[in-house]
Amino acid sequence: MFQIYLPIAEMSVDIFLLLGMGGAVGFLSGLFGVGGGFLMTPLLIFIGVPPPVAVGSEVNQVVAASVSGFMAHWRRRQVDFKMGVVLLSGGTLGSAFGVWLFEILRELGQINLVISISYVFMLGSIGTLMMMESVRTILRRRSGTTARRKAHVHNWAHGLPFKMRFRTSRLYISAILPVGLGFFVGVLASLMGVGGGFLLVPAMIYLLGMPVSVVIGTSLFQITFVTAVATILHSANTQTVDVVLAGLLTLGAVIGAQFGTRVGAELRGEELRGLLALVVLGVCATLLWRLITEPSNLFSLSVVGLN
């Protein structure tokens, strides 16, 4: 009905489809407090956006989705900037490496495949873990026992060199850990168009041992800046950032997230989390199905130097 032309994706899409997708994913991200990039990129691929453009545009949208959260935590002084900068140094390297890898894979004609396979692995493991956690919690609640988790255990990581003091996080740990973590999440941002909060937050708590009060704010700091760097690097090197697409998704997501946050404040259900796990596993299964069914045409064309 109301078609809009996406200049970088070079296709026309119904404007309300994009707003609706932005709204739905925004709602989920408001509900669960995560960015939503890990659902949006596959959905864009499903509606026919070329996977590289889906990744480049989504990483741009994550900037919009995380910046206000970062500012809010900053105002409440819940950001460990020193830790954030160390994470970001790794994240910048990681996203540069990711964009470099992205270009090589595109030249080899394998970028679509690598994006899809990465998503199958990532969504598969996240979905399974969430499902297991959810089922375990429901069972535990039924049996009436509660388990208090141990926040931080001393492990092999404490033997690493280059120790640094992080005053806000009350930590004295090797800088290798946050740099490495930032690097990995940076690669994910460039290659898959995700902020990586779903992975960064638990890793900061369990691996780095940060106090949870500063984890969300610090992760949002890293996500905002790494996705900004990835957006610029993608724009300069791969030309896969469609600002019209990102803008429409953001518009939908901002509205959806408001409702999600509101509903999330009222609801507190393990079943809800189980439902998100099902959605994640469903998207994963659809991606896998597309990889294993024989395509209608085995041949495809690509122009050298273009996507």
Partner: peptide, 30 residues
């Protein structure tokens, strides 16, 4: 659309910086 396409292909870095600024503004405004 054509102007945008040309801009993205001819001055990608500037396009990217503006894309980030636009996203930041949209996020804060929203």
């Amino acid at each position: 659309g054509a102007d945008l396409y040309e801009f993205a292909n001819e001055d990608g870095a500037l396009y990217g910086i503006l894309a980030v600024l636009g996203a930041v503004m949209a996020g804060l405004l929203g």
